[in-house]
Design a protein around this nucleic acid. Structure first.
Length: 387
DNA sequence: AAAATCTCCAACCGCACCCGT
DNA sequence: CACGGGTGCGGTTGGAGATTT
């Protein structure tokens, strides 16, 4: 049974909390739906930053109020305004939850009045969409999520809402904050300027209009789906040779030199961004909305597809290295040589250890970079010809 | 130990777009 | 077509807590 308040199928009838002797709080929710009433209980642990109810309606999110920061984003912009701003109290959260569960979302300007809140409607909407929504994740970003954010940002820039839609349970605000506080700095430390990368992609995209470039890149071969990132496996369901893959097999193939192995690849197994995006339940649903449709029509149109193709190319086939201030795709422009081909296999063999040692995508890149340099010191030789 | 600096992220702002009238 | 309310979105802020000096 999966419930979400956004469609008003479930209604919170009552919320009660009891403080236990150990400091944790016992929370009881009475939820009704068209399937009847349901009671669920959970414990808010004082040492956990966030919390989800563990029950059959685990999608209902109860924030850990004990750790809430008592800060404000900014002081009230208008003293004449009589509405409250700043952090939300548990009581206010409960009112929003109760209101949304009873009435659903929409018409947020009426919410404060109907819910008995001294807030502006916009603030209520933000609180719901960014924090209280039951389908939100409140745990740390996974390496797979990092990877996806980086690649999508490279392809489409800071269109956080679109990126967030590829990350179930994450809001645009989450992604944006994570990018600004973590990922951007990590990339910059590696000598990668994310802004420049995206601009280069855009520039390349604007100069390359010949459809064959898209055809070539879009059909960039996939050798072995078992080694592909998880989200590519999702997209490659049409590929007869695709098989299931564990979520740990995320990184290695991203650094393998696919292009040099093109002859080995079955021509029947291809990948396209449009397939990738449409294959996702979240995306495919959203794609029916006109706004997103126009966004992605634009993004995926033949004349604008090279950016996505480049990103796809990068994702599926490139050997990313970070040497000094350079960020380059070793295999982008030609054969690298037997060494790297060999390395592809070696990298696959090393996959398990590699995945477990890398704490994040970026860390993974750095690890892989070091590994490559130790295996193939000729890559560091200035006379080495990539082309 | 205290001060300075950095990190994180919830919340805000303001613009643009959608949609009904 | 114009208007206005509602909503979506990206950029920005600011202060508590963490870390460094």
């Amino acid at each position: 049974m999966s419930m979400g308040f956004s469609n008003a199928k479930a209604r919170v009838q009552d919320i009660r909390g009891t403080l236990r002797e150990d400091g944790d709080e016992e929370v009881s929710l009475i939820v009704s739906s068209n399937e009847g009433f349901e009671s669920c209980q959970s414990t808010i642990c004082s040492h956990h930053h966030h919390h989800r109810l563990q029950s059959t309606i685990s999608s209902v999110y109860i924030p850990d109020l004990s750790k809430r920061r008592h800060t404000m984003g900014r002081p009230p912009c208008c003293d004449k305004s009589n509405v409250k701003r700043g952090l939300w109290t548990p009581e206010e959260d409960a009112k929003i939850l109760a209101y949304v569960s009873n009435h659903g979302t929409g018409n947020w300007t009426l919410v404060p009045k109907k819910a008995g809140l001294n807030r502006c409607g916009k603030s209520c909407r933000l609180r719901w969409t960014n924090y209280l929504r039951p389908d939100l994740k409140h745990d740390r970003f996974a390496p797979e999520e990092e990877e996806l954010i980086i690649k999508l940002h490279e392809a489409i820039g800071s269109r956080w809402s679109l990126i967030a839609k590829r990350l179930p349970g994450r809001t645009d605000n989450d992604v944006k904050n994570y990018w600004n506080t973590k990922l951007r700095k990590k990339l910059q430390k590696m000598g990668i300027d994310p802004k420049t990368m995206h601009e280069q992609v855009q520039e390349y995209n604007s100069t390359v209009t010949h459809p064959t470039s898209w055809d070539f890149l879009a059909q960039f071969p996939v050798h072995d789906t078992e080694k592909l990132p998880l989200f590519f496996n999702e997209a490659s369901s049409s590929c007869p040779s695709s098989s299931s893959s564990s979520s740990t097999s995320t990184f290695t193939q991203s650094y393998s030199c696919q292009k040099s192995q093109a002859p080995l690849i079955s021509p029947t197994c291809t990948f396209t961004w449009s397939e990738f995006l449409l294959s996702d339940p979240v995306f495919s649903t959203e794609f029916h909305h006109q706004e997103e449709r126009s966004d992605f029509d634009e993004m995926l149109s033949p004349t604008n597809s090279s950016a996505m193709a480049m990103a796809q190319n990068d994702l599926s086939s490139c050997n990313i290295t970070s040497t000094g201030s350079n960020y380059r795709s070793v295999c982008d422009h030609g054969t690298v040589g037997n060494g790297l081909e060999e390395n592809n296999n070696a990298a696959a063999a090393d996959h398990a250890a590699y995945s477990s040692s890398a704490s994040s995508f970026v860390d993974g890149i750095l690890d892989k970079d070091r590994e490559l340099h130790s295996r193939f010191p000729q890559l560091l030789d200035p006379s080495f010809d990539y082309y």
